Computed example of a mutant assay.
Amino acid sequence: MSPTSAQTFMVVGVLRDDTDLAEFAAIRNDEEKQLELLRSAGRIGAHYVSPARRATFVEVIADDEKQVAETLATLPFARFFDADVYPTTPPDAAEIAHRARATTA
């Protein structure tokens, strides 16, 4: 997958009501480490959290929704969220340039 040409997807994850919050908190560092690995590999872009709505928003850079699911499955927090995947418009020239810089840095 070329990060400069791959499709982007916005994943909206909502925390499940039956989540064990102690277990969730216990693996937070593992989640952050995995996000950084995926970001450095050009597979994750933006990541936002809305604690008030118990939701997270993750930009995934992938060739297709199957690859999005594979990427999400590597995240320790994945089992705590119900996720919806939204394909986004192709990256514009500025985003392509940013991705190219990010993968060569």
Rank of each mutant, 00 (worst) to 15 (best):
A22I: 07
F24W: 11
L38A: 12
F24C: 01
I27W: 04
P90Y: 01
A55C: 09
A105W: 07
I27C: 07
V12Y: 12
Y48T: 08
A83M: 14
Q67D: 09
T103Y: 05
R79P: 04
E70I: 00
A69W: 01
V68Q: 07
Q67L: 02
V49T: 12
S2N: 15
P3V: 11
E59L: 06
V49Q: 08
S2M: 00
Q7H: 10
Y48Q: 02
T103V: 14
K33N: 11
G13S: 10
D92F: 08
G13Y: 09
T104F: 08
Y48C: 04
H47D: 05
Y48A: 07
V12H: 13
L72K: 08
E23I: 03
T103I: 15
L75D: 13
Q7W: 06
V60N: 02
A6H: 02
L75S: 00
A55R: 12
S50G: 03
D63F: 01
A41Q: 13
S5A: 13
E65V: 13
A94C: 00
E59W: 00
H47C: 06
V12E: 12
I61W: 09
P51L: 10
Y48D: 04
R39W: 09
F57H: 08
D20M: 08
D30C: 00
H47V: 14
S50C: 15
T104C: 01
S2H: 11
A102D: 08
E32A: 14
V60W: 11
P87Q: 06
P90F: 12
I96G: 00
E31S: 04
E23T: 09
A41K: 14
D18F: 07
A62I: 04
T104S: 15
V12I: 14
M1D: 06
D82E: 15
T104K: 14
E36D: 15
A52F: 05
A26T: 01
A100E: 12
S5C: 02
M10Y: 04
F80T: 02
R99Q: 14
M10K: 03
E32P: 02
Q67C: 00
D20C: 07
Q34L: 05
A78H: 13
F77K: 03
R16D: 10
R39A: 11
T104A: 15
F81L: 12
A94R: 09
H47G: 03
L35P: 00
A83E: 10
R16N: 14
L37T: 11
